[in-house]
């Protein structure tokens, strides 16, 4: 069997409960928040490492973000990834999905050899799910979104996966190279190897690339490269509710509730 060159795209996201909105300035406070690897991207890493165990080859991690992402790149190495690249430059900042997928695609081109590009189905902060098909288009690879149960048929250079549909699923097979968005919960991410962690933190191969290190056109990355703009932010308003607390024993509460709900019964 032919060894596989696997690219694992990851993102570091703030823990959802940590993000606060300044209601006065309507800006998002992301200062000292705790972060984590985007949960479906953990499934990406597990899938990449499992495939490497099955087929041999190499797992290369790529991310785009500020320098604070770097420890998480090392965490991916501690889980078993071989090397990591972080696209980090102010010029990449404030990118929408078009500019993000372009920059990542160019980073992947620079890494060079790839059979599979694995991404999480969506990020927990942006939740657009549009970057994986975007990367696939820039690199002109096939794509499988919302995938689980990935099977690489390396002799025929195909990949097969179960893919989520509205109210169902399908099993499809496409040629390599392929960009895959991995369904959240597709597997259980392995824990780090503690010996590897020591190595990853001290000597793990993490390379930081600035915009000038990869072949990108300045007007196609970051804010200038983003056709969409944020026109405003607002605090979510919730509908006024009655908020009537029902008292008494469960039997009494049930009786009152059924009275209140009579129109629906």
């Amino acid at each position: 069997m032919r060894p596989l060159q696997i690219i694992a795209c990851v993102k570091v996201v703030p823990k959802p409960e940590e993000v606060k909105v300044d209601t006065k300035t309507m800006t998002i406070e992301r200062g000292e928040v705790r972060s984590e690897i985007n949960p479906p991207d953990m499934n990406v890493l597990e899938m990449a490492l499992t495939l490497k165990e099955q087929h041999g080859g190499k797992v290369t991690v790529i991310a785009m973000g500020p320098p604070l992402f770097e420890p998480y790149m090392r965490l991916a190495l501690a889980m078993g990834a071989d090397e990591a690249y972080l696209l980090s430059d102010r010029a990449f900042a404030a990118a929408d999905t078009l500019a993000t997928s372009y920059a990542l695609a160019q980073g992947i081109r620079k890494i060079g050899d790839y059979d599979l590009i694995l991404c999480g189905e969506e990020s927990s902060d942006g939740a657009t799910a549009q970057v994986p098909p975007g990367i696939a288009e820039w690199l002109e690879t096939s794509q499988i979104t919302y995938a689980e149960d990935l099977e690489v048929l390396s002799d025929s250079k195909m990949v097969k996966a179960k893919r989520e549909l509205a109210g169902g699923y399908e099993v499809i097979q496409v040629p390599l190279p392929c960009t895959v968005s991995v369904k959240i919960g597709a597997n259980e991410p392995r824990f780090m190897d503690m010996e590897r962690k020591v190595w990853a933190e001290a000597d793990g191969p993490v390379t930081v690339w600035a915009a000038s290190d990869i072949d990108v056109e300045a007007e196609m990355i970051g804010l200038p490269g983003s056709p969409t703009i944020v026109d405003g932010l607002a605090q979510a308003e919730s509908t006024e509710r009655k908020r009537e607390f029902l008292e008494g024993t469960p039997e009494e509460q049930a009786k009152v509730l059924v009275e209140r709900l009579r129109p629906y019964l």
Partner: peptide, 26 residues
């Protein structure tokens, strides 16, 4: 990597959240 399902998640919960419940430290 021959451990029962759920245990790696337990360790990640301890790692990322500092508790076995996977709840925010706050």
């Amino acid at each position: 990597r021959e451990v029962p399902e759920g245990l790696p998640t337990l360790l990640w919960d301890v790692y990322f959240d500092g508790n076995t419940w996977g709840r925010p430290p706050s």
